[in-house]
Each structure stands twice: as C-alpha cells, then as structure tokens.
C-alpha cells in the first residue's frame, strides 16, 4: 500500500522509472519472501556436513535423496496419495453441493436458515484437528470403522469448510445468465449442468479439490491417532525423522518429497486451466 502511495507522489518524475523499477523491486522482494525459507531445506537435502558458521555445507551427498527410493518411503507416498485423492473427491463433491444449497433462495429455505447452514459449514474450522481427533477417536474405534475410513471421515470434515467456501466465493461471481442463454439455445438440463455449470466452475473445482487433497496429503495428527500408527504416510515418516538428532538431511529430503508432488499437480491443474481459458 505504501508503495502505491509513493507511486502516486512520484508521478511527476519520468514515468518509465516509476513504472518499471518499483514494480520490479516489489516483485523481487515478494519472490525473496516466498522462496527464502525453502533455500535451507534444499541445501540440507543434499548436505553431507553443515555446521555453523559455514554459509554453505562443507560436503555434499545424495544419500538422503537416495533413501527416498526405499520401498518403505515409496509405499508411504502411495498411501499419502491415496488419502489425499480420497479426501479431495469426497470433500469437493460434498462442498460443491453444500455451496449450491447455500446459494439460492430455495423453496422452504429462509435467509436465516441459509445463514445457519453457512455457519455450520464453517464450524469445523473452529475445532482444532487435535480436539476433533480426540473426541471422535473413541467413537470411531467403538464403531470398528477401518482406520482408513476413520481418517477419511475426519479429514473430509476438516476439509469441508475450505471446499465449500471455494465454491461459495466462486458462485458469488457466477453469472446465471450463461445457463439461461444455454437453455434458450435449447440445451437440456443435463447439458446445462455438465457443459455450462461444470465448465464455468472448473477452476473452483480444481482449487477446492486441490485444497482438500492437501488436507489429506499433509495430515499428521489425525493419521497418527486414528490410523493407529499402522497407516504410515509421508508425514508420519517425516515426523519420526524430524524427532531424531542428525536427521536434518532425511527430514529435508522427505520435506521435498512432500512438496514436489502437489506442486507438480498444481502446475498440471494450472496448465489445464490456462488451456481451458484460451479455448473458450
């Protein structure tokens, strides 16, 4: 904000300087802010020995990176992926439906009840994962729910506020006219939903699904307590590596293993999004 203000005060100067230098500096500062914390992680993942006050590691090794290829780690990765995708599907579908329900004035629904439902959908945010797990664990154990199902149910509830509100904000700027136009052009209701609605909401679906995926992908406390330690995912391996002395290298490598797949997924989604936009 202050930068923009100084931009205004300097408007009398030659325009090109303000226009090119300031945004460039601001962009650079933002990039540094975003990237800097990742630098030590990257360095540690390939470091042999690295002691203060050395700025860079004194030796390098690929040991930590290679240990990621061990079957134990790969299996954990597959489980994390499965959990993430399952949470993504359930939470996105339920959240999308909830957002539609919250939106329109439906027969029999008053604004007050809409507001109440909106509030209910936000409440999982208010319950820290720890409290949610502690409360539901005994119930799930008692119900003999398989541990994967238990973790999935709890994480879906955790992810629902995110997916719901991704759709709510997207629907806020959603133009019903497109659907009306499609209908007047003779589209069937099914076509309207499939082609127009899903098409227009694709970015929101992708974003909601992605956030929900992350809830499952990165969860630690729910998986450990409800999964009973037998459902070993990447965060569990990371947690145990992080709690050991001299585990920096492995911790850093596992950290990267947790960061890279969703980033790749993100890039794929962004690409598809971009293609969708240009073709429309």
């Amino acid at each position: 904000m202050s930068l923009s203000r100084s931009e205004v005060s300097r408007r009398r100067r030659p325009r090109w300087r303000v226009r090119t230098v300031l945004p460039l500096l601001l962009g650079l500062a933002l990039l540094i802010w975003i990237m800097l914390p990742l630098v030590p992680v990257l360095l540690w993942s390939a470091a042999g020995a690295w002691r203060a006050p050395d700025v860079l590691p004194s030796s390098w090794t690929a040991d930590a990176a290679l240990s990621l290829a061990e079957p134990e780690v790969l299996m954990a990765g597959v489980r994390s992926l499965g959990l993430g995708l399952s949470v993504a599907v359930t939470a996105t579908v339920l959240g999308g439906l909830a957002a539609f329900g919250l939106r329109g004035p439906t027969p029999g629904g008053s604004p007050a009840s809409t507001r109440l439902i909106g509030f209910v959908m936000l409440t999982p945010l208010a319950v820290p994962p720890f409290a949610l797990v502690m409360g539901s664990n005994v119930l799930l154990l008692g119900a003999r729910a398989p541990s994967f199902l238990g973790v999935l149910i709890v994480l879906t509830v955790t992810a629902l506020p995110y997916t719901t509100y991704m759709f709510v904000t997207a629907l806020a700027s959603y133009e019903d006219r497109f659907e009306a136009v499609a209908r007047t052009l003779g589209a069937s209701p099914a076509q309207v939903v499939l082609k127009v609605r899903l098409g227009l909401l694709m970015p929101a679906i992708a974003r909601a699904g992605f956030l929900a995926f992350l809830v499952g992908w990165s969860d630690y406390i729910t998986t450990v307590l409800i999964g009973g330690g037998q459902f070993i995912t990447l965060p569990l391996l990371l947690g145990s590596a992080a709690s050991s002395t001299g585990g920096e290298q492995l911790t850093a490598a596992l950290s990267l293993a947790m960061i890279v797949p969703p980033v790749v997924l993100l890039i794929l989604l962004a690409r598809r999004g971009a293609r969708g936009r240009t073709s429309s």
Partner: peptide, 26 residues
C-alpha cells in the same frame, strides 16, 4: 438448500459427537 444436506449432516454428526465426547471428558 437440499443439496447441502449431506455435508451439513456429516459435519453435525462428526463435530457434534466429537465435541460431546470432549465435553464429557473435560
């Protein structure tokens, strides 16, 4: 409104039950 039902029920059921458990234990 009706499409919101599955999500709302799931949230109420899981959260409600969990909070009751937490409350009872406290």
């Amino acid at each position: 409104m009706l499409t919101a039902a599955p999500a709302v029920i799931l949230v109420l059921l899981v959260l409600g039950a969990a909070l009751i458990m937490v409350g009872l234990q406290s």
